[in-house]
Structures are given as C-alpha cells and as structure tokens.
Simulated assay, not measured.
Amino acid sequence: MTLRIALAQIPVEHGKPEENYKKVAQYLSKAAQAKADVVVLPELWNTGYDLARLEEIADVEGQRTKEFLQAKAQDYKVNIVGGSVAIKEHEQFYNTTYIVDKQGKLISEYRKVHLFRLMDEDKYLAAGDQKNVFELAGVKSASFICYDIRFPEWLRTVAKKKLSVIYVVAQWPQTRIEQWKALLVARAIENQAYVVAVNR
C-alpha cells in the first residue's frame, strides 16, 4: 500500500486561535488539492505555547477542534492526524491530539504523556496516561507528541502492537533540530516502523 502524506509545517501564531484555525483550513485545502491521503498538523497549533493564557484561549473539551477537523475531513475526503491542541476539560488543561478519518469520524485521541518542564508544561498542563493505537487509511498506526520521543520505552510499549506508522507532532526548537532528527531515526530503527513527523 502507498500513502500520500501531507505534512503541514505551519508557522503557528502565538496565542491567536482565530488566525491559526484559518491557517490550518488553508493548509488542509492545499493538501486535499494535492490528493493527500493523510494530513498531519503540528503540536499546539491552536494556541502555540501561550500557556499562561490557556484559561481564555484553550478549546473547551476540544469541541471546536473536533467539529472543525471532522467537517474538513468529510468535506475534503482526507484523513487527519490533528497535530495537537490545547484543551480545557474538568478544570484541567491538556495537550491533545485528535485523529479523524476521511468520513469525518473521530477514531482516536491522545493526551501528551511526557510534559517538557524546561518550558513549564508541567505547571500549566496535566499529563495523559493512555496509549494511542488506531487504524488510519487501512494502516495500523500510533501517535505521539514532541517530547514523548525522548522516551524510547514509551514508544516501544506502544509499538509492540505491530505498528506500521508512528506519527509524531511537535514544536521542536531550531537550536536542537539535529537531536530531533536523530531521535526520529532512532525510534524508526528500534520499532521497525515508518516515522512520520511534522514540526511547526
């Protein structure tokens, strides 16, 4: 099987959800025009790392994002690995990925497990604790968020499910981009799976 995958390396606007939803809509349209089977978005594309303002800008229960991604997937007949967005749920904030198939069905979601303390994620966000394995475009897959890839044991426990594709979404800094590349290659070799990664 061959998949055409579009990676939306979007320059996320810090703390400006309205601009970011418009930008993502444009990228999804371009990916559909290019006949992509799957589109992958970056980490925290709705708010960027404006963590101090999550109370006012996070997506409540992810409702807006889910409806947005489901509508676009259905309109364009494209599968979407929805990067991740900041959501508020039960008075806590999470860095959350939504996976939507081309029929517009939400098939999986994942909350970032490993929070990056150097950017104070642990002060603003709650960590997830669930694996995220799903079938997308007929391929058994899993997704992770940014700093997760520094924990090979975590990916390995998930990859034991005999995955073919590992999706990684990130806002990895330019100053450490060589580590990003090396870690992605290492995770692919260790798990004998394709790694599809998109950075902002």
Results as ranks from 00 to 15, higher is better:
2 T>I: 08
2 T>K: 15
4 R>K: 14
9 Q>R: 12
10 I>Q: 05
11 P>N: 06
12 V>A: 03
12 V>K: 04
14 H>W: 10
16 K>W: 03
19 E>S: 09
21 Y>F: 15
22 K>H: 09
23 K>E: 03
24 V>C: 05
25 A>D: 07
26 Q>L: 09
34 A>R: 04
34 A>G: 07
34 A>T: 01
35 K>V: 02
35 K>H: 07
36 A>L: 05
38 V>D: 09
40 V>F: 02
42 P>A: 05
42 P>F: 01
42 P>G: 03
44 L>A: 12
45 W>I: 01
47 T>C: 12
48 G>T: 12
49 Y>G: 00
53 R>D: 14
57 I>E: 10
63 Q>I: 14
68 F>W: 07
71 A>V: 01
71 A>I: 03
72 K>C: 06
72 K>Y: 08
73 A>D: 01
74 Q>F: 02
77 K>R: 14
77 K>V: 04
77 K>A: 13
78 V>W: 04
81 V>I: 14
83 G>E: 00
85 V>F: 09
86 A>V: 00
86 A>T: 11
86 A>S: 15
87 I>R: 00
89 E>I: 02
89 E>M: 08
90 H>S: 10
92 Q>G: 05
94 Y>C: 07
96 T>S: 10
96 T>I: 02
96 T>A: 08
97 T>K: 02
98 Y>R: 06
98 Y>L: 12
98 Y>G: 00
99 I>S: 01
99 I>G: 03
99 I>A: 06
101 D>Q: 03
101 D>C: 05
102 K>Q: 13
102 K>D: 12
103 Q>D: 10
103 Q>T: 13
104 G>E: 06
104 G>N: 02
106 L>H: 03
107 I>M: 07
109 E>G: 00
109 E>H: 13
111 R>K: 14
111 R>M: 07
113 V>S: 01
113 V>E: 11
113 V>N: 08
115 L>I: 04
117 R>W: 05
118 L>V: 11
118 L>Y: 15
119 M>K: 14
122 D>C: 10
122 D>Q: 14
123 K>A: 14
123 K>P: 15
124 Y>V: 05
126 A>Q: 06
130 Q>R: 13
130 Q>G: 04
131 K>A: 15
134 F>P: 04
136 L>S: 06
137 A>R: 03
138 G>S: 09
141 S>P: 07
141 S>Y: 05
143 S>M: 08
143 S>P: 00
143 S>Y: 05
147 Y>P: 08
147 Y>W: 14
147 Y>S: 13
149 I>S: 07
150 R>P: 00
150 R>H: 12
152 P>D: 03
158 V>Q: 15
159 A>H: 11
160 K>W: 10
160 K>E: 15
161 K>V: 06
161 K>P: 00
167 Y>I: 07
169 V>Y: 02
170 A>I: 06
172 W>I: 04
174 Q>G: 04
174 Q>T: 12
174 Q>N: 08
177 I>W: 12
183 L>N: 07
186 A>N: 13
186 A>E: 15
186 A>W: 02
188 A>C: 08
189 I>E: 15
189 I>R: 07
189 I>D: 11
193 A>R: 00
195 V>P: 04
196 V>W: 01
196 V>R: 03
199 N>Q: 01
199 N>V: 02
199 N>D: 08
